[in-house]
Write a protein that binds this DNA or RNA. Structure first.
Lengths: 339, 339
DNA sequence: CTGAAAGCGCTTACAG
DNA sequence: CTGAAAGCGCTTACAG
């Protein structure tokens, strides 16, 4: 590896001047700057990020934390899409992404410890279960951070407008003539799960549809199996709903499967709405009516918030709520003229 | 931040001894080791990875490179699954993952430059287009690396047994009575694309089915749209195939859509086989008959190969070919008793 | 079993 | 505009 010393020796300047020239400081003459930059290039010089981070107390590195309750990690289609967009955005500012887990070497540590060990300048947290004490510690720590799809005033947050989303879904179903509308809920210890249950209830109120306990079934942590079983419970009811709003696309897909397995058809017998608009939503049969979360905007906003926090430590925390969109496809049907 | 100096001062030992105690060296008395470890813990001490990496010339960091030709990055369901398993494996050895792109700060650099800048101990390369000169440079560099789904003797490789996979697919289709079997190929500049075209042709030979030019259509870079259009070309043929083997699940899904849009049915009119067994393959309608690549094993093997290479620089490169499995679902149908 | 010292490759006051 | 020196927080010969 060629170091700053090698460049200094070759050009005859001191390492101080070389460093300043390479970092494009103003107080170096244009002429010597040119010489140094050219020589460095020829020699294939590269700064050593460790040495740089050590002196500057800044690593241009951001930690990504997936809380692994579901065990899917970066396989999760919604989160991985957000992270991909987040990554593209922060790269523009020179930041690289590093995954933070709960181990250092073989020893189990906390996320914070690991983040400090790796010297990240900030972290982005994506997970469903924010009650995890480790996550709480992380969010409340002074380390700049941004969390997705949750609300807290302890750090920066960005999330989709779940309330409006639920309203869009319910408006849509109601306009198609549905009143027996059930909800497959995401786990009650997740922010999104709770928010959407809320939104569902508010919409019922809006249309003066009485709320029925049996019409909310727990689908667990947004899994296919959870959706499948939840739907089976709805199908076993005396009064089977004509429409089901699932708190996530994967759960919706599980629900569709349950309906098919029961010998029924979507949307002829039951209309289904999902949430997320993952890549596959448009490719399944029937294609899924769902809420599109704007992953690109979420990733971009999260990046901007985090970088801004890093650069202005004293800044207040921000909460950004992003608009959503209802995507109508084949899984919902008008039943006003039916029977 | 509390440093080794703070721990030294508090315990009265030198930083040398503190360092050795904390790293569990044998030449420290049990007693002082205990005191130092305990004090360090109480003080919330953590090693600084930059200082450590700087002196040790080892970062316990691995670079992940997604070559972004398709622009999907970590959204790709197959690659993200492999990386997730790779990550879990390397974490056991104390390695963290960092994403490597082609920028440092704002300047466009090569992957290698970036990898050196970040001081990674090794890299894992996942991409489809290995002709990219940047990728070639990377693979041929002395930096320990492992690449997925490609063959080269310049570095470590791990890939699925494409030849056997194709045989399984064709055996299956042939046993169901199909002889008019077409292939939707992955881009010809990808290793997997080429390998599977080969396997397809070999299997035709095996069954003495004459090869028809028109029965191989290019599906591009394994995309849904590519599969859709390729299938449309097949449907326009005078003699429409009764079965189609697509080089990837996403392409297969595009093909299924094209068939539906043409008013035909899978598998009644055309049987479809995919490749990968991504999460969704079993959830679409009809569920997809496909080749399961063992992502867990691929990730794990890649991790072991890379870590082994890092620890034994002189070791020869390895090529590991992993077994595959045919998963028969609803998208293929027996036509022996048909018509 | 323990410690003083050098060195890893940078950046940044400070001095001129 | 340029350079000598200190310091970031570690590890590792070397010496005792």
């Amino acid at each position: 590896m060629v170091t700053i010393y090698d460049v200094a020796k070759k050009t005859g300047y001191s390492i101080t001047t070389v460093s300043r020239a390479l970092n494009n400081y103003s107080d170096v003459s244009e002429k010597t700057k040119k010489v140094i930059v050219k020589t460095a290039e020829e020699m294939g010089y590269f700064p050593n990020s460790f040495a740089r981070s050590l002196t500057m107390k800044k690593s241009f590195t951001l930690g990504v934390i997936f809380v692994e309750d579901l065990g899917v990690g970066m396989k999760h289609p919604f989160f991985s899409a957000v992270i991909e967009d987040f990554k593209r955005r922060v790269e523009k500012f020179g930041y690289d992404l590093i995954f933070i887990n709960r181990y250092i070497g073989n020893e189990k540590k906390s996320y914070i410890d690991h983040a400090y060990y790796r010297g990240v300048d900030g972290i982005i947290v994506v997970c469903s279960n924010y009650d995890d004490p480790e996550v709480v510690k992380l969010i409340e720590s002074p380390l700049p951070s941004v969390v997705l799809n949750v609300h807290t005033d302890k750090t920066n947050v960005v999330y989709s407008n779940n309330g409006h989303a639920c309203e869009l879904v319910m408006d849509h179903l109601f306009s198609l003539g549905h009143t027996k509308i059930a909800h497959i809920a995401g786990a009650s210890d997740t922010f999104t799960g709770k928010e959407r249950v809320n939104g569902y209830k508010l919409a019922l109120d809006k249309y003066d549809i009485p709320f029925k306990d049996t019409y909310i079934v727990d689908g667990g942590y947004f899994s296919y199996e959870g959706g499948y079983e939840a739907m089976n419970r709805l199908l076993a009811l005396d009064e089977v709903p004509t429409a089901v709003f699932a708190s996530g696309d994967i759960m919706a897909m599980g629900a569709i499967k349950a309906i098919k397995d029961a010998g029924l058809t979507v949307p002829d017998d039951v209309s289904i709405v999902g949430f997320d608009d993952i890549e596959l939503a448009k490719h399944i049969t029937p294609s899924l009516t769902t809420i599109r979360q704007n992953t690109e905007l979420i990733g971009k906003k999260a990046a901007d918030l985090l970088i801004n926090q890093i650069n202005n430590k004293d800044e207040d925390y921000s909460a950004v709520m992003l608009p959503v969109e209802l995507i109508v496809r084949e899984s919902t049907q008008d039943i006003t003229n039916k029977e």
